[in-house]
Nucleic acid binder design. Structure first.
Lengths: 339, 339
DNA sequence: TTGAAAGCGCTACCAC
DNA sequence: GTGGTAGCGCTTTCAA
């Protein structure tokens, strides 16, 4: 492995000068620049980022912790994160917490030990990482979900508004027996979607029966079991609002097993859109979150935080960007069955 | 930020001893160990991995470069990679090459500069990274796909066998007019699937008409356009073998647009399985690759390579592990239409 | 404009 | 069993 000394020697200049050329900072005589550059090429020199990081106290690396790589929502966000990070000169250390708070904690510690400049986190628990933010005042941006009563930096979707609009869509179609399969209710994404649903029902003067509120956990299987329960009710709902993509898939399986037609017998409106939802059968009506945008904005906010952290400016650190979702009407929702 | 000196001072021992406790290597009196450990806790000390890496010349980090995070096949592999890497004490630097060879090159250079201990790569081009492998003799394991004539370390699916079995399935159903939508034909995954298809046809004495061989590029849109072309032929095929998931989705869209029933009018067999395929309508018959296994094995092989690289053992470095795929028969394939 | 040298936090060698 | 210290490759004073 070639070092900066090798380059300096070959170019016949000092290590200091070589470093200056490398970083294009101080002014160096063009003649020397040329010599150094060609020495670098001749030696196929790649500066050691590790050594550089040790000296400069920054790694140009950000960590990202998500609960499930397999969920298309998160991979769509990651796509935005990855490209924005690269453009800004940062690399990404990727961690999957598997929706496990203790693994999340482990990952966070690892990232911290690796001296990442900042962290992007979709937390699994109310206060797991909150800790790190406040105790260490470490650059940390939440995305997708935040703990209730959160104060800090985050990029999220307007879940309440999106759920409200989705429910209005169902009501507008004429549905009166509308059920919901919620996600976990410990964080804003689950909580706000339920809240928006409630608000729309209330405004329309529609009741929310206990048995129409099924608590899921954002995993496929809970969508399946909640769906089964809902569809086998004495008076089943004519429409179901399902709070994320994995559960929607589970719900559709339940429909299939029971031979319940959609949208013939029951309309389904799912939270989260992605390529395959548009070609599901029936083509799914969904709430599409601005995933790419969320990823990009989260990176940008994090980098701003990193900068102000470095300069000990604590002013602008706390804010939440709220992105709008979009309702994509397709074939899984229709007027209620009346026969 | 606390350093090892702070810990040493508080514990009343030397830096050397502290380091020994930290790395559990040399023997230290239990009494001192205790003092050091509690000093670490008191100071909330996190050893600086950057400094450690500089000294030890290893980062305990592996880089992974994939062509598309959004493709469920790759995210499934990543899941296996992530968990195995974590268990083995490695972190993951994640890069998306976006199927762009020059971006792949950039990513590789970045990883190299960051002194990752090794790289996992699903290449986009025949000889892009091959270079790095041979010139630098850097620990590198390919997965999913390798250049034709490849020699080196890799973990791949038995694409030829899987495609052969898939085609046999179609033939067994009674199909004689069988078409294929291929992927890009520059790497083993595209090449071998076509080859397996050809072999099965040939063995059955079935012809492969020119117009039944549609060249796609593994992207959704090519599946769509190839599908359209196939279905509008004067004598359309009764079955289509589609060489990856994204193209299968595109193909299903084409079927939908043209109102062609599946499996009524045409059977579809897609390469790559994942959660949503099983509930697509119709439920898709697919070839399921052992994605998790591929991820795990690739990591294990890479770590073996890293070890032997470190010890300058060049013996066992070149080998290819071939994993078996599994045909999952569902509803998108049936006997040909005969009316 | 250039270069000598200190030092980032850690490990590992070597002397005790 | 313990500790002093050189040095990993780099950046960054500071003096020339």
């Amino acid at each position: 492995m070639q070092t900066i000394r090798d380059v300096a020697r070959l170019a016949g200049v000092s290590v200091a000068t070589t470093s200056k050329v490398l970083n294009k900072k101080a002014s160096v005589r063009p003649k020397l620049v040329k010599r150094v550059v060609s020495a670098m090429e001749a030696l196929d020199y790649h500066p050691d980022q590790v050594a550089r990081s040790l000296k400069t106290r920054q790694t140009q690396t950000i960590g990202i912790v998500i609960p499930d790589v397999t969920n298309p929502f998160f991979t769509d966000v990651i796509r935005g994160v990855e490209s924005e990070a690269r453009v800004q000169g940062y690399s990404l250390i990727f961690c999957d917490s598997n929706e496990d708070p203790s693994l999340e904690q482990t990952n966070l510690k690892m990232l911290f030990s690796r001296r990442v400049d900042g962290v992007l986190l979709a937390p699994t628990e109310a206060n797991a990482a909150q800790d790190y933010l406040t105790r260490r005042r470490f650059p940390l941006v939440f995305f997708d979900r935040v703990p209730p009563g959160f104060s800090g930096s985050a990029v999220v979707t307007d879940n309440l508004g999106a759920a409200y609009d989705a429910t209005r869509h169902l009501i507008g179609l004429g549905h009166e027996r509308i059920a919901i399969i919620t996600g976990r209710l410990n964080l804003s994404n689950g909580l706000d979607r339920l809240e928006g649903f409630r608000k729309a029902l209330q405004q329309a003067g529609l009741p929310l029966r206990d048995e129409y509120l099924q608590r899921g956990d954002f995993q496929l299987e809970s969508g399946h079991s909640c769906g089964l329960r809902l569809l086998q009710l004495a008076v089943p709902p004519t429409a179901i609002f399902c709070c994320n993509n994995q559960m929607t898939l589970g719900l559709m399986r339940a429909l299939g097993e029971l031979g319940v037609a959609c949208p013939g017998r029951v309309s389904v409106l799912g939270f989260d859109d992605f390529d395959w939802a548009a070609n599901f059968s029936p083509r799914l009506t969904t709430v599409a979150q601005p995933t790419l945008e969320m990823g990009k904005q989260a990176v940008q906010m994090l980098i701003r935080n990193i900068k102000s952290f470095k300069e000990r400016v604590n002013s602008d650190e706390e804010k939440v960007v709220v992105l709008k979702a979009e309702l994509r009407g397709r074939d899984s929702t229709a007027a209620p069955y009346s026969g």
